[in-house]
Amino acid sequence: MENKKIIFTAPWQVEVETEQRSSFKVGNKEVLVKKKYSLISPGTELACLSGNEGWFQMPSVPGYSSVSEIIELGEEVEGYQAGDHVFHYGDHSLYSVISTSGIFLKAPSDVPLHWVPFTRMASVAMTSIRVSNIELGDHVAVTGLGLIGNMAAQLASMQGASVIGIDLSLNRINTAKECGIAYTLQSGSTTKEEIAELTEGRGVSTLIDATGIPSVVANGLPWVAKYGEVVLLGSPRGEFQGNITDLLNYIHLDGYGCITFKGAHEWRYPVEPDVFVKHSLARNSQIIFDLLRRKQLKIEPLISHILKPEQAVQAYEGLRNDKDHYQGVLFDWSEV
């Protein structure tokens, strides 16, 4: 059996490796799967490829969102059979042995297979809605309209908000329009005034930052209405030089707005359902499946490329250096 893997071997070095395997050892509660599609998470994977993520040790296989076909089942696996398509947090490799605990869900049969890996990105985005106070009629700004930010904007719209999507890239702004985002702005020196006009001078009640760039958050604070909230969806990365007293005053002083900051990292909720907690990653994923079935969550406009694993270097180079044209990049393993 020939297994193919995409490997980060060193900072900014991507290779495709093929190995021969006579078999895979499958535990009692594990399955052997063959990938159909895996989705690149641009923010996380480029951070790993840079060598700046301490938890990702090179050489290693990146990736964490896949749809696969079950090839072999462990003796204690119930409710599944060979040939089933499943959504799981899988890496960029053709074959892998995975546990059936955690996020291991049957892919909906009435949803295109290549949409299914986007469930992970949508689940990440959904955390920003879960922690927020967004209600019907609110104005919400989302900075950064990549995969995560775009889907956060779509989900905030479903929550009943008038959403303002903000990005530097006109291509991403146009994609947001295709996905039904009510208002879009190209960020610049007049953004505050444009937001004031859209909100009749009140500002947004919620600012969701999907960029992870500290300066973007700092620059967005004047857009937030009094007693509003800032939701940190993108993981903050990079150095920022500034006066922290200004930031603290936005939180502390009534004159600055008494703004509340909230973290929206996906792992703040349990993976599997728990009777003591309303939300879980598994429940969020099932809700997203339903949104995909009803075509309420737009996926097709987000897909910029479907590439073969052999084109991995092109994929990561594009995501790093041509962000206008590379956004949702899938690896198609179906003919490998």
Rank of each mutant, 00 (worst) to 15 (best):
R268I: 15
I299A: 02
A196E: 09
S187E: 13
L105G: 07
S109K: 15
S128Y: 02
M121D: 02
W12E: 07
W12K: 13
S187M: 12
E317D: 13
H114R: 15
G234H: 02
T191A: 11
D274W: 07
T184S: 05
L302G: 02
E193C: 11
N52L: 14
G242P: 04
A107W: 10
T143C: 11
Q81H: 13
E78K: 14
A196I: 03
P214G: 10
L319T: 02
D322T: 05
M121L: 15
L207F: 03
C258F: 12
D254C: 09
G137Y: 06
V230E: 01
G79W: 10
S65Q: 12
I181P: 00
R294L: 15
K226V: 13
Y316C: 04
E200A: 14
C48R: 04
M151R: 00
Q286H: 14
A125S: 15
F240V: 12
E78R: 07
V31W: 07
T260N: 09
S96M: 10
Y95K: 04
S96I: 04
V217W: 01
Y256I: 05
A141R: 00
S65R: 02
F276E: 13
S50R: 13
L105Y: 14
E229P: 01
Q20N: 14
S38Q: 05
E75H: 04
A176M: 01
T44Q: 06
V97N: 03
P301T: 08
L170Q: 11
L185Y: 06
V26Y: 10
E197K: 14
T184A: 02
S162P: 00
Q311K: 09
T184I: 06
G228R: 00
P62D: 08
T100A: 11
L221N: 08
Y80S: 01
I303K: 02
A182V: 09
S60K: 14
N219G: 12
M121A: 10
